[in-house]
């Protein structure tokens, strides 16, 4: 197999890798905010439960969670396994990443001094207005480097989807490596991941620059 055919074949998998990446971000970013707000809830029971789930999601391997979401319902209730593996993959990834994002959001929100809330209250802002107009914009700015870290990890984590037979780029690479008894597909996969992350890094860098309006 020539290098060009190999790259062409693996590009097909790139589409599926991108599908996991974008859909996970789409769901995990807002979900993480909900989780973070619940985690900071004044109600001890709610924050306790959420805290427990976060420790479970961060304390067990993503691959295990992926297997649980995909095959769990079948083993527990005899339900059919989804033919479209993108669904369980995105569910598992979104929940897992939401847990990480939530903790980053929480760190960001709690880093804002109390005085700002008091100042906002004096100026007559409602709690929602204070959060949306004053707190959130600062939080976004502060957490961006940590978010870049997670997003880059997400790109590489997509390869875990092979555990449930979702044919993303690394799976196809493995298949070619097998049939050709060659190491080359792994090199190609490595280059693909690097380029993907290079783009991600640049885009996140642009955001950071745009938000750096005080210096």
């Amino acid at each position: 197999m020539s290098l060009m055919t190999m790259i062409a074949k693996m590009s097909e998998g790139l589409e599926k890798t991108c599908a996991i990446f974008f859909l996970t971000l789409l769901f995990a970013i807002p979900l993480g905010m909900i989780v973070a707000l619940l985690r900071m809830s004044k109600n001890k029971i709610i924050s306790g439960i959420v805290r427990f789930f976060i420790t479970v999601l961060r304390g067990t391997p993503l691959m295990l969670q992926l297997l649980a979401v995909t095959y769990g319902p079948h083993y527990l209730f005899g339900a059919d396994i989804s033919r479209n593996k993108l669904i369980p993959v995105v569910i598992a990834f979104s929940i897992n990443y939401a847990a990480y994002f939530a903790e980053i959001y929480r760190g960001g929100i709690e880093s804002i001094p109390k005085g700002q809330y008091e100042a906002a209250a004096v100026l007559g802002y409602s709690r929602l207005q204070t959060f949306m107009r004053i707190i959130l914009p600062q939080v976004v700015k502060r957490i961006l480097p940590s978010m870049t870290n997670e997003v880059i990890t997400l790109v590489k984590d997509t390869s875990i989807a092979f555990a449930v037979s979702y044919e993303e780029i690394f799976t196809i690479g493995k298949q070619i490596a097998n049939s050709q008894t060659s190491f080359m597909p792994f090199v190609v996969a490595g280059v693909f991941y690097y380029l993907f992350n290079f783009v991600v890094d640049r885009i996140m860098g642009l955001f950071e620059k745009r938000l750096n309006y005080y210096s």
Binding site: Y71, H74, A79, D80, I81, R83, A163, V164, S165, Q175
Partner: peptide, 16 residues
């Protein structure tokens, strides 16, 4: 393509 034959059979059993 599954990474073990057991998963192949699990997929079959779950009608995937």
């Amino acid at each position: 393509t599954c990474d073990s034959f057991l998963k192949c059979f699990t997929e079959l059993s779950g009608n995937a």
